[in-house]
Amino acid sequence: MKPAPFEYVVPKNLNDCLNFLYQHSETAKILAGGQSLIPTMNFRMAQPEYLIDINNLNELSFIRTDKTGGLQMGALIRHHQVENDPLIAQKAPLLHEVMPWIGHVQIRSRGTIGGSLVHADPAAELPSAMVALNARFKVKSKKKERWIPAEQFFVGLFATALEPGEMLVEIAIPAMPLHSGYSFQEYSRRKGDFALVGVACMLVLDKNKVCEQARLVYMGVGEGPVLAAQACQSLVGKTLTPDLLQQAAKIASQNDLTPPNDMHASSAYRRHLAEVLGHQSLSQSLERAEKSF
């Protein structure tokens, strides 16, 4: 239960870091909060040759708004900073509500938002929340810089769209539309555990209270965040009623998801949870969206 030896590298700035990463992309890992990486190193499931410690890169540690009222966050922002930031509570209340579900206070004081996203645990909260929020990720390598929508970033079990030599540097969350509601629901065996099933939800209504956009994104039911596309489609363009929401939750659990069977829960149980939690999150989102009128 001790990590294998590695070379420890402390870049002075982001350029330094990207240069090193470019040279050693196959054998280097980035150390941010370390709350997932170091456990896997303790188990020797990960044995990187080089560990690039980015904790001193203050340029990745910012929270600000853009001209359109959207949020921009550096990848090195720690969970407790997101949890306690008044700007985030105001601009991205869904994210604010998600944070206490991530691990425990001891984990949130070290873990970083970028680290959690690139780790891409299928039962983690942040990836699904980011997909629900239509977030975009800025990734950088020595050679180029590009933006990836959250929906395209998570490509499989612990896998992302990052190419060798690229790192996540910034997360951008668009401003909440005027009439929108949100909700986050999760069920786990113990508080702070990864979700058996969780769901992040965003509903956007137009001025006539017709559903303009629905985002129902599950965790713990697949290889990454799962957008319940058919369920969302069943809501868009309609005036939302309790019956419609109930029906959408059913569509999500029956048609959109293929939950795994494992020692923690059977596929059928996860399907059941997906329907119950999906319904709860849609109902709360609608309630909140209606308050904006």
Binding site: L31, G34, N42, D53, N55, H80, Q106, I107, S109, R110
Partner: peptide, 18 residues
């Protein structure tokens, strides 16, 4: 659990060099 810069943290998933 220890306090790292006054915040609770798990010392088993941090390196001393950090």
């Amino acid at each position: 659990t220890i306090l790292f810069d006054d915040k609770p943290a798990r010392s088993c998933i941090m390196f001393a060099v950090q």
